[in-house]
C-alpha cells in the first residue's frame, strides 16, 4: 500500500478521480445514443460494448473516490447538475455523424490508453490497480476506433470529407483533456498521478503517426486549452436530463 495522503492531496485526488469518471460517463452516454441507430448491427453492438466498458471504468474511479470520501457512486453520477460535472467539452458534444463519433472516440481512446499506461505506475496502489485493469480493456477500443478512422479516411470521397471535417471540428477540444485539476501538480510530484504533459507528448506523436501518416488526414488546427472543466457547452444539460431521468423520477429503482 502507498503512504497515506495528506489533506490537500486527498482533495486533489478526489477532484481528479471525479473528472476522469465524468469523461467516461458522458462519453458512454453519447455512445449509447447509437444503440438501435448504428449503421450496421455489429457496430451497434461494438459501441454498446465500448460504452459499457467506459461506464465500468467510471465505476472504478468513483469506487476509489468513495474510499476517500465515502460518496455513493450512483449519487455522484445521477444527482449532480451540469455545473457540477467536470467532464471535458469534447465528450459532451452531440454524437454527430458516424465519422464524428469514431474520430472523437479514437482521440479519446488513445488519450485514455496512454494515461492509463502511465497511471499503472502510480505510487498510490489503488489507482495503479484500477489503471492496470482498465488498460487491458481500453486497448480493444483503441484498435477498433483506429481501424474505423483509417477505413473512413481512406474510403470514399464522401467518407474522407466527413472524417477530415470531424477531425477539424473536434481537434481544438482535445486540449482540455490535458488540463490539470487544482492540486494535480502536487500529486504528480508525489508519483500518485502521471505527468499529463508527458502523456500529451506521446499522444500527439501517436496522433500524427495514425491520422497524418497512415490515414492521410490534414492536422493543421491548433488546439486551444479552453476554459476549466466546470464550464460546459449548452449540450450537457439536456444530456444529463435524459441520462438522470429514471434515477431522479424513481429514486428507489433497482439495479436491473
Amino acid at each position: 500500500m502507498s503512504a497515506a495522503l495528506n489533506e490537500s492531496q486527498r482533495e486533489a485526488l478526489i477532484r481528479k478521480l471525479t473528472a476522469l469518471a465524468d469523461d467516461e460517463i458522458i462519453l458512454a452516454h453519447r455512445d449509447g445514443e447509437w444503440t438501435g441507430h448504428a449503421p450496421i448491427l455489429e457496430e451497434d453492438i461494438a459501441l454498446a460494448n465500448i460504452a459499457q466498458d467506459e461506464l465500468g471504468h467510471a465505476l472504478l474511479y468513483l469506487g476509489l473516490r468513495s474510499e476517500l470520501d465515502g460518496s455513493d457512486p450512483d449519487r455522484v453520477a445521477m444527482f449532480r447538475k451540469a455545473a457540477e460535472y467536470t467532464n471535458t467539452r469534447l465528450v459532451e458534444l452531440p454524437k454527430g455523424d458516424w465519422a464524428t463519433t469514431m474520430v472523437r472516440q479514437f482521440l479519446y481512446d488513445a488519450y485514455e490508453a496512454l494515461w492509463l499506461e502511465a497511471a499503472a505506475q502510480s505510487t498510490y496502489a489503488p489507482l495503479a490497480e484500477v489503471a492496470q485493469k482498465a488498460l487491458r480493456e481500453e486497448k480493444f477500443h483503441l484498435q477498433h476506433t483506429a481501424l474505423w478512422v483509417e477505413r473512413l479516411a481512406l474510403g470514399t470521397e464522401e467518407s474522407q470529407r466527413r472524417t477530415q471535417k470531424a477531425l477539424e471540428e473536434l481537434w481544438p477540444y482535445t486540449a482540455q483533456l490535458f488540463q490539470t485539476v487544482e492540486g494535480e501538480a502536487e500529486l504528480v510530484e508525489a508519483g500518485i498521478l502521471p505527468d499529463i504533459a508527458a502523456v500529451r507528448v506521446r499522444w500527439e506523436a501517436l496522433m500524427v503517426r495514425h491520422l497524418q501518416d497512415k490515414c492521410a488526414l490534414r492536422m493543421s488546427r491548433e488546439a486551444f486549452p479552453g476554459p476549466s472543466r466546470e464550464n460546459h457547452t449548452e449540450h450537457l444539460a439536456p444530456l444529463l436530463a435524459t441520462m438522470q431521468k429514471v434515477a431522479r423520477e424513481v429514486p428507489n429503482a433497482e439495479v436491473w
Binding site: E43, N49, E137, K139, F140, Q143, A146, L147
Partner: peptide, 29 residues
Amino acid sequence: LITLEAEPTRCPRCGSFDVNLTASFGSTL
C-alpha cells in the same frame, strides 16, 4: 506495448489461421 493490431486467432472448428475479424466486439464484453 499498446498496439493498434489484433493478435492472431485460430478457427475453433477447422483450426485454420485464415480467419477474418468481422467485429471487434461480440455478444459479451
